[in-house]
């Protein structure tokens, strides 16, 4: 099987969400000596991007998108030993994510984290109801490229602003790009509180992260 045909089959397995086929294909590819980085970049990532496009067209439903994300994450995990020795392999960037203080909703935030990680980001998830001070500490400690702030309630949206202000006061606001999201959050709100990006849903969160990283 030619490499191109092989990669197309990997892409196809991701799009069909066929977990078993994908796992078989990947182990077969490794056994045949196909570069694992090629499998990731030209197979898994492209497959997931295709799924993202189909999701945007409403041809794929959210639970299916999540399943594809999970599948790809698992496969990437299994490829870690092969990839860790490759100096060309690097994550797109470090993405710190949290649900803001006072808000215990994290399903949406977890979906975003999953898709980001499946798309090649290193994700550090601080969990739910995270105070601004903790986020500041972690920004200082980990120096992430992007910080994602989630809020599901209109009453906890102001805590997103609070985080941005806390980072400003500490003089580290310019060090990190900030994306906000959550059901009541709008693009106008993101602009008003001085965020760099706005994620309408889990899939666009990845697009916006890529945009902020200059990858799209």
């Amino acid at each position: 099987m030619e490499t191109e045909e092989y990669l197309n089959r990997v892409i196809d397995a991701v799009v069909r969400m066929d977990k078993k086929d994908l796992a078989d294909l990947v182990s077969k590819g490794i056994a045949q000596g196909i570069d694992p980085l090629l499998i990731v970049n030209e197979g898994l990532t492209l497959g997931l991007r295709k799924v993202g496009v189909l999701f945007a067209d409403e041809a794929i439903f959210l639970p299916e998108l999540v399943l594809a994300g999970q599948m790809v994450t698992e496969v990437m995990e299994s490829l870690k030993p092969q990839l860790s020795g490759d100096k060309n392999y690097k994550k797109k960037g470090l993405f710190l994510i949290a649900t803001v203080k006072g808000d215990v909703h994290e399903i949406g935030k977890n979906l975003v984290a999953l898709l980001l990680s499946a798309s090649g980001y290193e994700v550090v998830d601080l969990g739910k109801s995270v105070p601004a001070e903790t986020i500041l500490e972690k920004v200082n400690e980990l120096s992430p490229q992007i910080l994602g702030l989630s809020a599901l309630l209109s009453t906890t949206m102001p805590a997103q602003r609070e985080v941005i202000q806390t980072l400003e006061e500490a003089g580290v606001r310019e060090k990190v790009k900030i994306i906000v999201g959550g059901a009541p959050v709008t693009r106008d709100w993101a602009r008003e509180i001085g965020a760099d990006g706005y994620a309408e849903d889990a899939s666009t969160a990845v697009d916006d992260a890529d945009r902020l990283m200059g990858l799209s």
């Binding site: 999701f55 409403e58 439903f61 959210l62 639970p63 949406g108 979906l111 059901a183 849903d201 889990a202």
Partner: peptide, 17 residues
């Protein structure tokens, strides 16, 4: 006390309530 219920479907395409 009042017995309430506001459970409903979700839009499977977007995840919206």
């Amino acid at each position: 006390v009042v017995y309430g219920c506001q459970s409903t479907a979700a839009d499977m395409r977007s995840g919206a309530y």
